[in-house]
Nucleic acid binder design. Structure first.
Lengths: 296, 296
DNA sequence: TAAAAATACTCCATAGGTATTTTAT
DNA sequence: ATAAAATACCTATGGAGTATTTTTA
């Protein structure tokens, strides 16, 4: 059985006339007769009761007409859908975010995708750690990752810079520098510092300590927390101060003030994708770039 | 696009290897390469990322794999179903019954069909009138009809006799002959008679009056009702007596006694079907014959 | 007898085969 | 170096066309 048999059968079922159906199919009448004969032979069932004066479907014919219509419609839909998939407007894309991109980039992306790529199902996962994100992209369990690029370059994946943003200080509301225009990082030398985890689990830890060294001090006490939200809450609780990328200010917490640094230090944000990610991932990548364009 | 493209694509999607997939399809490898090229050209989308070492589906390819599998499974199911339809084990059949077959043949048929033709949806309609039944079968709004054959022969439809059954008298419980072994019809000459409608709407009316004439009398008062159930209830209410085919005894009503006639008069029951009714109708017709075989 | 489906036959388009080349690892 | 996909080319099947016959209402 081939689709041409089904298409011909449907036409014949509708026209109930070999000549007209053949014309509609751009076929000669005998070709249609033969196709029907083949089809009936293959399914082993008479589909059309026919004489020179009357063409009528059998019960089996009526069933096949319905099913054939369904199948042909399915295939038409499929063809359309394939084009959508190829254009990246239909599909499923998973994006992972490091903690400091979770409260700013993630929601912006979600809103943009909802508007511009309604056919793409997004799977967004926030508060992840950079090394795991890279591995996930490598093994295709994630399509895209928004990370803070670390020291060592990544050459088996595509990495595109998204933005460079300044650090801001996170201070408890009662802190003397809270509410100021800017704070000199050196003024915080004696405070306890709350940071992301050390080791190779987060790029932030090293960046923050490097900034302190640049300001001429090494923090006296360091408290490590793994979630950015927890970090901010710790500051609110008076456990210390912190340095975070400016976009973390999207995370508003009572009892906490964000204050720019007098001499700004910066961190990068980058998008990582697999070299042969699908078109939907490419579309979403474009939206990630759009979501990070205006540095807030 | 033809089914062979889909079949080949599915095999390739599963094997992820042109050589093996081609072998499974009993094709040479270049034929498969060509089919894929045609398919991709037609849908305008790359379906497989391939190098000499790696064959991997694109997003679009994965979508098509799913859809193609669905379509092919649908068609397989359809082929099976067509055979069932052709054998008369799958389908829909409507059967109409005259009033006096409604309470005996109809329920027997329903039970038999449930057992032996579970795939056939039966549409059973009782208490109809013979002329309407015949027209309904002619115009195919009914597949089968169980009727009391009238005087004039029907030659454009298939009529097969089902059974011949004796009339029985329907008497009120208090009637002197109620409970007897048999009653002589002439003994009821003075009673009011309850019958089915006169005119050409029911064959019963004429049959009953003919039986009375054969017994040597003409009923003094005749009351016409259109439903058999109503007729019996009228007798129970003391409105008169009636003559009905023996199978109506299936209709048990308090206050009514059925009594055989001393000199039996008979009526026929017949099955009417369209000459080119489908196989399901033929199967059901066989069950109707089975349901009427043992004269009760 | 006239309209329409079936049959007879012919032809050529094309699906698929064989041989070979290209490519990626 | 080698396995595997792509390309080139050829062959033959069979799908569709034309002409004709058969059927039935």
């Amino acid at each position: 059985m081939e689709l041409r048999h089904l298409r011909s059968f449907v036409a014949l079922a509708e026209e109930k006339h070999f000549g007209r159906a053949a014309a509609r199919l751009h076929l000669a009448q005998p070709a249609l007769s033969q196709q029907l004969r083949q089809l009936e032979r293959e399914v082993g069932v008479r589909l059309v009761d026919r004489s020179t004066r009357r063409v009528e479907l059998t019960d089996a014919g009526r069933l096949l007409q319905q099913r054939a219509l369904d199948v042909l419609a399915d295939l038409d839909r499929t063809t359309d859908d394939l084009a959508e998939v190829a254009a990246g407007r239909l599909g499923r894309v998973s994006v992972g975010f490091v903690g400091t991109a979770t409260y700013d980039v993630l929601p912006r992306l979600a809103r943009l995708a909802r508007e511009r790529l309604p056919g793409v199902r997004l799977d967004l996962r926030g508060e992840l750690l950079a090394p795991g994100l890279l591995d996930a992209v490598r093994e295709r369990s994630l399509d895209l990752a928004v990370v803070r690029p670390g020291a060592e370059p990544v050459d088996d994946l595509e990495v595109t810079p998204l933005r460079t943003e300044p650090f801001v200080a996170v201070l408890p509301a009662g802190h003397p520098s809270a509410g100021r225009e800017a704070v000199d990082l050196a003024a915080l030398a004696e405070e306890s510092l709350v940071t992301h985890p050390s080791g190779h689990r987060s790029a932030m830890h090293e960046r923050v300590l490097a900034a302190c060294r640049a300001a001429g001090f090494s923090p006296r006490e360091v408290l490590e927390v793994s979630e950015t939200a927890t970090l901010v809450v710790f500051v609110a609780a008076g456990m210390g101060v912190a340095l975070v990328p400016a976009s973390v200010q999207a995370l508003r917490v009572d009892g906490v003030a964000y204050v720019p640094l007098a001499r700004p230090e910066t961190v990068e944000l980058a998008l990582v994708s697999h070299p042969d990610a699908g078109p939907a991932a490419a579309q979403v990548a474009a939206l990630v770039r759009a979501a990070t364009e205006p540095v807030p």
